[in-house]
Design a protein around this nucleic acid. Structure first.
Length: 731
DNA sequence: GACCTGCTGCGGCCTG
């Protein structure tokens, strides 16, 4: 029997030998037969640096080695930087096979693109947006250039699933099969990722119509050692007249300085503002200690130049370097491995934490994670969020889920994304010049990624697009671009399907406090926290993009960031489990492993004491002075729903860090009203969404018919069934 | 006050 290795092209075998590899990894061997077969989709899910890229490219290049007259492999990446990295990695393999590798994105010179256009061959590395432009601008050329296409491979596939970009990508892939006349014999798709939850459901996200079978290949050897620690910090209360104690951030910076100097680390700080302030403090500390600075910020608002300099410094590894970063260093940009990962304030998801962990762990040392968590010093007026030490317990819950349960959030595939459907209708019409409505329906909905859209709603959308002159119907029945459609498609910003979130100015009286992107439901009367203070929304002006607020009374504002948003049900349930057990430790064999330092332990005990003395194990509604607090221990979609129900019943309410506050009322009153709502039957998501004045979230939301906008918004923000279940259990 | 991603074609000017 011949080995997998021997099935590869002899020139590739020689290339492997020249790399000095003694053998292929298990994952790479396993991938050879299904990739060479070229008759099915393949999902390759394995840890960072496990050799996923080679697992695909070695057999795939083997299979297309002798293809002429067009591209054999289409590689799609969510990031330009990743395309540049992969280009560097694939060049020598390409040379060995005399197979060109062409990077193609917005920063690639026109001359290079023109050269590839004249002689398309080998491997094309591209972004979804550039592919969209190609389909719209040169579909005739594409039909020729992609004629021998054998594989479409998608890198960092988890970054696409369930998102607007993911829907666009699936539609693009369908459009390629269509243009090549391969609807019934589609081009095999290969997805690469390190962070795929509920793996068995992923093939449906790779090919919704399931026309090809999908093999799933995973890395069986997953015995990574991981060192974890949670460190607690106390944010001192502001005292007047005395020398202020160092702030929690200052204490944290001193520890980062001590822990990181001399090696390479990543510090995830969750927000640009905190990233900048920590990086600045660390640079000051270096100066004060007369040592060279090795701490630099990295986030999306920094220039590409600054970011790349830092990435190269990390990758070269000859100078100790610590990046203080946001999620920009989460995906697979080539920066090598770092000694440890530090997380300041809890991450927003376990999936994200897992991805970040993958950055740590060099050959000689195990992966290491530290979480540095600050909580406010308690005062007589401290709120429930502080008293419970929710930040700390959330961090502990996430660590337990990551290590103990090996759980992380699966992608949310419930959204419809009407905005992206609108975009793809325009894109397909622009690509073909004119199409019939039934062709759009079958390509996008029946056979494509928008399977959740019913024919009635599709008709509503098309009719609306006609009325608003995005589309025009010819006497033949064919749909072509209307005046407004032309206007959108001809803007070069058309190719991207996501928008940079619109910013709303927050105005109190005649003073602008700043601006925030509106990506969570905001209602008049709702309480928000901004600039460390509590505000009540008095009015929202969607046209001027202004939110008017006025100061509202209350105790000290609770300590939490935006991480309170979009927390998953499972995380909050794990938090409740920790309080109920009175223990956060992880069981390994017969031992309990403690990962908290003394300060974190004492903070945890404070939170636990509050939990137990208020009997929160069985009480979900509690009275504090004149306010009622509701603890659901569930995710934010359910929280939003209950919050909206209470607002619609005339209560003044807001929610912070998973806790709903209802002002000036009693537990009995709240329960009475909720019981009445439950008896009458809850309103639908659609009905709740109708009461939200600002519903524009995605790029073309403002061009949608109201009924579809409201439906999409309701599905995204609310979960009526979840609340019904919760109320049934706890009233 | 979570975070992140991406983009054409053409005319005009400059430099080697």
């Amino acid at each position: 029997m011949i080995s997998e290795y021997q099935r590869l092209d002899p020139r590739i075998q020689k290339w492997i030998y020249r790399q000095g590899w003694s053998d292929l990894r298990e994952l790479q061997k396993k991938a050879i037969p299904p990739i060479l077969a070229c008759d099915r989709d393949v999902l390759i899910s394995a840890a960072t640096a496990a050799g996923k890229t080679e697992a695909f490219f070695l057999p795939a290049c083997s299979a297309i080695a002798n293809i002429q007259g067009g591209f054999g492999i289409l590689y799609i990446s969510p990031l330009k930087a990743l395309i540049n990295d992969q280009y560097r990695r694939l060049e020598s393999l390409g040379d060995a096979l005399e197979m060109p590798v062409t990077p193609w994105h917005g920063d690639i010179a026109q001359s290079k693109k023109l050269r590839a256009k004249k002689n398309p061959s080998g491997i094309l590395l591209i972004t979804p947006e550039s592919l969209e432009a190609m389909l719209i601008r040169s579909s005739g050329w594409l039909k020729q250039a992609f004629a021998p296409l054998a594989y479409i491979v998608i890198d960092e596939f988890h970054a696409f699933i369930g998102s607007e970009r993911g829907m666009q990508l699936l539609s693009l892939l369908n459009r390629i099969d269509h243009i090549l006349g391969r609807v019934n014999n589609p081009v095999p798709r290969v997805a690469l990722s390190a962070t795929l939850g509920e793996l068995e459901k992923v093939p449906l996200s790779l090919r919704p119509n399931q026309r090809l079978p999908c093999d799933i290949i995973t890395d069986s050897q997953v015995h990574t050692t991981l060192k974890v620690q949670v460190k607690g910090y106390l944010e001192p209360r502001t005292s007047i007249g005395k020398d202020p104690l160092p702030s929690a951030e200052s204490q944290i910076c001193h520890d980062i300085f001590r822990l990181c100097r001399g090696d390479s680390h990543l510090v995830f700080a969750n927000s640009r503002k905190r990233t900048e302030s920590i990086a600045a403090t660390l640079s000051d500390l270096s100066e004060a200690n007369i040592v060279p600075n090795e701490f630099f910020p990295h986030h999306g608002s920094l220039s590409r130049d600054l970011r790349e300099t830092l990435e190269q410094r990390l990758q070269k590894g000859n100078l100790p370097t610590t990046a203080i970063c946001t999620m920009t260093l989460e995906l697979g940009i080539d920066i090598g491995k770092v000694n440890s990962v530090i997380q300041v304030t809890p991450p927003h998801s376990v999936a994200s934490l897992r991805q970040r962990m993958g950055r740590s762990g060099r050959r000689d040392s195990p992966a290491a994670l530290r979480m540095l968590i600050a909580e406010h010093e308690l005062t007589p007026t401290s709120g429930i969020v502080d008293q419970l030490r929710l930040q700390l317990v959330q961090s502990m819950a996430m660590i337990r889920l990551l290590i103990d349960s090996k759980w992380f959030e699966p992608a949310d595939t419930r959204q419809i994304h009407y905005s992206t459907l609108f975009h793809q209708i325009l894109a397909i019409v622009a690509q073909w010049g004119g199409v019939r409505a039934d062709q759009l329906w079958s390509q996008l909905c029946m056979d494509g990624p928008f399977q959740k859209v019913g024919s009635n709603n599709f008709k509503i959308l098309l009719r609306h697009m006609g009325e608003r002159q995005f589309l025009t119907q010819l006497s033949s029945g064919e749909l072509v671009l209307g005046v407004e459609g032309e206007r959108l498609v001809n803007k070069y910003t058309f190719y991207a399907v996501f928008s940079t979130p619109e910013e709303f100015r927050i105005v109190a009286g005649n003073k602008t406090l700043g601006s925030i992107p509106v990506d969570s439901p905001l209602l008049p009367e709702q309480h928000i926290i901004f600039g460390g203070r509590r505000w009540k929304v008095t009015d929202i002006d969607s046209d001027k993009k202004v939110i008017y607020v006025e100061a509202t009374k209350g105790g000290q504002p609770p300590l939490f960031g935006g991480e309170g948003m979009s927390i998953h049900d499972v995380v909050r349930q794990e938090m409740l489990a920790i309080y109920r057990e009175g223990d956060y430790k992880i069981t390994v064999g017969e031992h309990k492993v403690d990962f908290a330092d003394t300060s974190a332990i004492s903070l945890f005990e404070e939170g636990l004491h509050y939990f137990n003395s208020n009997n929160l194990s069985s009480e979900f509604f509690i009275q504090q002075g004149q306010h009622v607090y509701i603890l659901l221990w569930l995710g934010d979609q359910i929280l939003n729903t209950l919050s909206a129900l209470l607002l619609n019943s005339g209560f003044k309410t807001g929610s912070f860090a998973g806790v709903i506050e209802v002002e000036q009322t009693t537990v009995d009153e709240v329960k009475r009203v909720l019981a009445k709502i439950l008896r009458a039957g809850l309103p639908s998501e659609f009905h709740l969404a109708e009461s939200v004045p600002e519903k524009f979230l995605e790029k073309y939301d403002e061009d949608l018919p109201d009924v579809l906008l409201t439906e999409g918004y309701g599905l995204r923000a609310f979960d009526v069934e979840g609340v019904t279940r919760w109320l049934g259990k706890h009233l």
